[in-house]
Design a protein around this nucleic acid. Structure first.
Lengths: 330, 330
DNA sequence: ATTTTTTATGAAACCATTTTCAAATCACTA
DNA sequence: TAGTGATTTGAAAATGGTTTCATAAAAAAT
C-alpha cells in the first residue's frame, strides 16, 4: 500500500506538500499540485485514517450503545443515526450492550481510547457508567446522567404518552384497564405510568397494575397472568409494542378477540405494529427523528455550533385496529 | 490524559518496560512490575488504541456491511456477529449500505484505511465491490466474489429450501401454488426458485411465478397482484418472511383466511414469524449460527488458524399455522 | 576465575500522517 | 540593486504507542 512518502517521491515534492494538496490546508504551486494529484491517481493512494485520527485526536467514529439491536425500536434508531452520521462523514461503531453494565463500560473505554468523536447512549445502567470519565461528548437517550458527562439528552414526552393511552382506552369504553408497566428504574416507564395514574384519578377509575420488562418473552408471561388474575379485563396498556404483541397473542390463543373482547394499546409505534393483524394501536415516538438529532448534536458539537441540551419530542396516538374507533378528536 | 511516558516517569522505568508489563510480551523484574502497575493505577492510564493499531496494523475492528439493519434477518445476523466478535476482543463497525453500491465502496475504503481486521459482507452489489483491492480478509454471505478477495463464504442450502417449501405446500393439498420469487440477481433467490421448479416438475404441477424484492413494501404490491391475477391461488411461496407477512395482510384484508382459503410459507424464519397471528410457516436458516461463524472465521484467520472456505448451512421446514398440518414426516 | 549464555532494560526507530517553524523563493518597491 | 513583505516549501517534531537492537547485568558453564 502506497503511503504519502511514495506519493511525495513520485511527485518530486515533500510529504507536507502532498498533505496540503489533499487537505487544501495551504496554498500550493499549481504545477506541483498537478504532479501530486497525478501521483495520487497513479498510486491509488488513500491516507491511513488511523495515523490521521491519532494526530488529529478525532477518529470520525461515533459509538452507539443500545441494549439490543434486535429490538425494533433500537434498530430503527440506530439506522437513523447511521444515515445522518454517514452524511457528515462519521462512521458508527455499534455496541450491543445486552443490558450488561460491564460490557457497556468496556465499550465506553474502548471508544475513548479510539478517540471517538462522540457517544450516543440508549441504555439504562446508570450505576457504573455514571462514574466514568471520558473525553468524548455523550448524548443520552431517555435518561439524565448524574455526573454531567453528557452534552445533551433526548427523550419523548412519556407522561403525555401515558395519558394518551389511558384516555384512548377510557373513551373507547373500557371499564377495567390493566396497565402493564415497564421497568420502574427507567424514567420512560415511570412517566408513562404516572400519566396513566393521573388520568385514572381524574376519571375516578380503579387502577390495575402488572409489571413487565420490555421484551417479547415478558409479554407472554404477563399475558398468562392477565388470563389468570384479570380474566374480565377489557383494556390493556402494554409497556411497549413488543409486549403488546405478545400479550395479544396469548389472549388471542385463549379465544379472546380484539377489539371486541379486549382492547390493547402499545408504545413506540415500531414498524411491526402496522404489520401484525389486527394492526396495533400505539403511542408513537418519532424514533427516526430522535436518531437523526442525536447524530446532529454530536456533529454540531464538534464544529462548535449551537445545539439544544434538552430535547423532548412530542408523542401521538396512532389509532389502528386493536382499539375501537373514537368519535371525538380530543 | 496520561500517556505511557507519564507512567514510565512515575514508575522510574522506560516506556518500553511499561509496554512490556501491559502486554506481557517479555520478562520484567518483579519490583519494577509492581511500580509500573502502581503507576498505571495511579494515573488511570489506558493505552491509546489508535497508536497501537497504527503500529500493529490491526485495529481489532470488523466491518459488517448489511443492506438494511432494520431488516430482521440482518439485525439478527449483526447481533450474532457482534456477540461472537466481542468475546474475541473485536469491535463492530456497522455499515448500512441501503443497497447503495457507492456507499458500500466508501465503507470498504474507510475500513481499509482504518486497518480493519476483517469485513463481513451481506450485500449483493457485485459490480463495484468486486474490483476493489483491499488488505483485509472478507467473509461473504450468500454470494461468491469473482476476484477471489474473500477468504470464505457462508450460505444456506437455498435449493433445498425451495424444494422444502414446494413439497410442503403440495403435500398440504395445494393445487395452485404461486411462487413469489426474490430478485434473480441473487443466488439465494435463484436457488430457491430452482428448488420450486424442480419439485413442480417432479410432481407434474403447473408453475405460477411472480417477482418481488425482499421488502415489506414489495409484499403489499405482490399481494394485490395475486388478488387480481390469481384469485384462486391456494398456495403461496413468498420470497422471504417479510414478504410473506405483507402478502398475508393483503389477502387477509380481502377476507381470505389462512390456512383455510390459502396457505403461505416464507423463508428465513425471522423472529416475527412466530409473533404474528397466525404464526407463519417458514423455511429456517440458522441466522445466528451464520453470524457467529462469520466472526469466528475472521478471528481464526488473524490467528493463522484453520477454517473452512465454503460453508453451507442446512435449512429446515418450520411448520406453523399458515399451512395445514402434514401427516407424513418425509 | 573466566568464559559463555541468558535475561532484563532503555534508547532509538517505527507506524503514517499533520503541523509547526524556519528557510527559501518570489514579487514588488525605493 | 538591495530591501521589504508575502508566499511556498521542506525538515523536523508531534501524535502515542510497540518493537528492535545493543548493552549491561546476572546466571550458568567451563
Amino acid at each position: 500500500m502506497a503511503g504519502i512518502r511514495d506519493v511525495a517521491r513520485i511527485a518530486g515534492v515533500s510529504p507536507s506538500t502532498v498533505s496540503r494538496v489533499m487537505n487544501g490546508t495551504a496554498n500550493v504551486d499549481d504545477e506541483k499540485r498537478r504532479r501530486v494529484l497525478a501521483a495520487i491517481k497513479e498510486t491509488g493512494f488513500k491516507p491511513n485514517e488511523l495515523a490521521r485520527a491519532l494526530f488529529k485526536k478525532s477518529s470520525k467514529i461515533i459509538g452507539v450503545i443500545v441494549p439490543d439491536i434486535e429490538n425494533p425500536f433500537f434498530n430503527e434508531f440506530a439506522k437513523a443515526v447511521e444515515e445522518e452520521a454517514y452524511g457528515s462523514g462519521y462512521r458508527i461503531l455499534l455496541c450491543n450492550s445486552n443490558n450488561d453494565a460491564e460490557k457497556e463500560v468496556t465499550y465506553i473505554e474502548t471508544l475513548d481510547q479510539m478517540n471517538a468523536d462522540g457517544l450516543i447512549m440508549a441504555t439504562q445502567n446508570d450505576s457504573m457508567t455514571n462514574e466514568l470519565k471520558v473525553g468524548m461528548p455523550i448524548v443520552a437517550i431517555d435518561r439524565k446522567m448524574t455526573n454531567g458527562a453528557e452534552i445533551a439528552c433526548i427523550e419523548s414526552n412519556h407522561y403525555k404518552g401515558g395519558r394518551l393511552a389511558a384516555e384512548c382506552l377510557i373513551k373507547a369504553g373500557c371499564k377495567k384497564i390493566i396497565n402493564v408497566r415497564g421497568p420502574q428504574i427507567l424514567t420512560s416507564a415511570q412517566m408513562r405510568f404516572k400519566g396513566y395514574q393521573d388520568v385514572c384519578e381524574e376519571y375516578g377509575i380503579k387502577q390495575y397494575v402488572l409489571d413487565s420488562s420490555y421484551s417479547y418473552e415478558s409479554g407472554f408471561e404477563v399475558g398468562k397472568k392477565i388470563l389468570e388474575t384479570y380474566p374480565d379485563a377489557d383494556g390493556i396498556i402494554a409497556s411497549n409494542d413488543m409486549v403488546a404483541i405478545s400479550i395479544y397473542k396469548v389472549l388471542h390463543h385463549a379465544g379472546k378477540k380484539a377489539p371486541k373482547n379486549f382492547q390493547i394499546i402499545g408504545f413506540d409505534d415500531i414498524r411491526f405494529s402496522r404489520l401484525m393483524t389486527p394492526e396495533l394501536t400505539s403511542i408513537r415516538q418519532p424514533i427516526t427523528e430522535m436518531g437523526k438529532l442525536a447524530a446532529q448534536i454530536i456533529s454540531r458539537y464538534q464544529q462548535h455550533q449551537d445545539f439544544q441540551r434538552e430535547n423532548i419530542f412530542d408523542v401521538s396516538l396512532v389509532e389502528r385496529k386493536t382499539t375501537k374507533k373514537l368519535k371525538t378528536g380530543k
